[in-house]
Structure formats: structure tokens, C-alpha cells
Amino acid sequence: MKAIKKTWAVAAIKYEAIAHNMAVLTGPLMTIGLVLVMRFIYQDKSDGIISPEALASLLVLGISLNMCMNGVAMVSTLISEEKEKHTLRVLMTASVTGGEYFAGTILFPFLLTVGINLLFLPITGCSVNGAGFAVYLATTVIGAATSCVIGTIIGIYAKNQMSASMLCMPVLFVFMLIPLFAGLIEGLEKITGFLFTGVLSEAAGEIAQGRVYHLGAFQTAVLLSELVIAVLLFLLAYRKNGYEKD
């Protein structure tokens, strides 16, 4: 009960931080805006009817952006902002535990990432059946969790918001750009299957083209193992330094 109250208090702090920080808010706004604009461009080019291939590439674009901007980048910014303003230590010396802080911090970014991914379906005008939706939802939830944990790891190592965005760069490069350009550059197609964002994009692409998509054993393994690895890395980093090194 106490833990839930404290977690909720942290989440409330983060909610206000998201709502009042334009740098954080641009993430979700840009993702949604970009997908909307792209949709109208595609629609214009093809007299109102979007081809399934175009629809698929719209979803891939949205999902890669969303996972990285609203999961990884947002969480790491939120944590490093508290370090910069010297409020993280204050929370920890006001009886908030590491676990409560973690849960409270990722709650809204996680919900936002899942929500935006779901929003892409109506925005792009993609129609999915029940089974397709179930796969889409499941991969979205696991993917969003993975990116929030990666964001936390970066938050642990970043001293301020500046260094957080620096540290985010290579992560975004891998998890955002590789799935995005996989369709264009041949070498990347082989790599993208090993990334959770790649698996998500692949699944979304298939679903968008009206094909029944079943997550294979390999894809499931990629999704789950990357979540587990992220959590382990987080625990390792947290054990070593806490959120803030002394």
C-alpha cells in the first residue's frame, strides 16, 4: 500500500515533468504528427487510396520513432532532469526506494508509448482483425517495456539532460534507424531481425498488408531476450551506482 502510494507520487511528479517540458513533449507530438503528415502525402500521391506497402512503411516509421523517442529518450531525459535539478537525491532521502522510483518513472512513458502505437492503427487507417490486433498489442507492450528499461539504464549513466541525449544517440541509431532503412539497404535487412524494434516493425508490416502474422519462435525469443537483457543490465548498473554515483 505504502509502496503504491510512493510509486504514484513519483508518477505524478513525472506526469507534470512531461506536461511542462516542451523538449519531452515534442517526442510524442512529433511522432504522431509525422505519421499523419506522411499518411496525407501517400494519400495524395495515390488518389486517396493507400497501398498496403505504403501503409506498412507508415507503421514501421511510426513504431521505430515511437519506441525510441517516447520510450528510451523520454525516460532517460526524465531521470537526468532530476539529477540536474538535484531532486533525485531528495526523493531517495524522503523514503522513496529504487524500485518505487523506477516504476513511477516509467509508468507514463510506458502507457504513452503503448497508447501511441495503438493510435497508429486508426491514424494510418489500417484495419486489423482480432488475431492481428492481439499480436500487435503483445509486441507493442513488450517493446515499450524494453525501451523504457533501456531509457532507465541511460538515465543511470547520464549526469544531465545533455549527456542523456548524447548517450541516446547510438541507441537510437541502432534501434530506430536500422528497422527504418532495412527496406532500402540490403545489409540492414539481416540485422533488423535481431532487434526488438525490427521484430515489431516486421510484425506490423505483415499485419498492415492484411497477412496473418504469427510470431515465430525466433522473433519471440528476440523480443523476450532483449527485455530480459535490458532488465539485467539495469539491475547491474543500479547495483553498482544506484541512480546517482557518489
Binding site: I13, T87, V90, A94, S95
Partner: peptide
């Protein structure tokens, strides 16, 4: 323990 003690560090911040 922090429910029973108060700590103000040399650079405690506020929101």
C-alpha cells in the same frame, strides 16, 4: 529510516 529523519543536503533541489 527516512520516514523518521529529515535530510537537507548542501544542494537539495526543488521542483
Amino acid at each position: 529510516i527516512y520516514e523518521r529523519i529529515g535530510v537537507v543536503s548542501d544542494q537539495s533541489g526543488v521542483y
